[in-house]
């Protein structure tokens, strides 16, 4: 049985109550990207400022549940000020966190253990995979960020 405490860790509740990087950036110059979860009506707006290959600023607007809001806040704190290369690495580690559960993969091999220690506060989202319907809440802001990064000219 999965406990509520696995999902609603203190860090998550903290980011929900006091979201980081909340607000808007003037767009343009900032990139503005919207993400929707049509099933529950949640929506998120991510503002990105990229200068010289670095994500120099990020702001988050929109409404949603504690998981989608805290995940967006945690994401903003994790990627702000990082180079785009580092941002992509963080995204890929987060996605790994959301997809790999206990046990073995389809080919029978053991999944590569995720180094939770290296993930900082993001590790608090690890409990979400035990609640499959909530994964889409946690990934909404990240998918919106990815969509934004894809729009940045190489």
């Amino acid at each position: 049985m999965s406990n509520l405490e696995d999902l609603y860790r203190e860090i998550i509740l903290d980011h929900y109550r006091s979201p980081r990087n909340r607000g808007e950036l003037e767009s343009p110059p900032a990139l503005r990207v919207e993400g929707f979860n049509p099933l529950c009506g949640d929506e998120i707006v991510v503002y990105l400022d990229v200068t010289n290959g670095t994500l120099s600023n990020i702001k988050i607007a929109g409404t949603g549940c504690s998981i989608s809001q805290s995940s967006a806040s945690l994401m903003s704190a994790a990627v702000k000020g990082k180079t785009l290369e580092e941002v992509h690495k963080i995204i890929s580690r987060f996605k790994q966190l959301m997809t790999i559960t206990e046990g073995t993969l389809e080919d029978g091999s053991e999944p590569e253990p995720i180094d939770l220690a290296s993930m900082g506060e993001l590790a608090a989202l690890a409990g979400v995979v035990k609640f499959p319907v909530r994964i889409k809440c946690a990934t909404l802001s990240w998918n919106t960020l990815v969509q934004g990064l894809d729009e940045i000219p190489a």
Binding site: G41, C65, I67
Partner: peptide, 22 residues
């Protein structure tokens, strides 16, 4: 202060089935 999805999630722990959403 509590999103309906979070309400429904907590209720589920008590075996309570309600519908969150629009």
């Amino acid at each position: 202060g509590v999103h309906p999805h979070d309400v429904a999630q907590v209720l589920d722990q008590f075996g309570v089935c309600v519908r969150p959403g629009h």
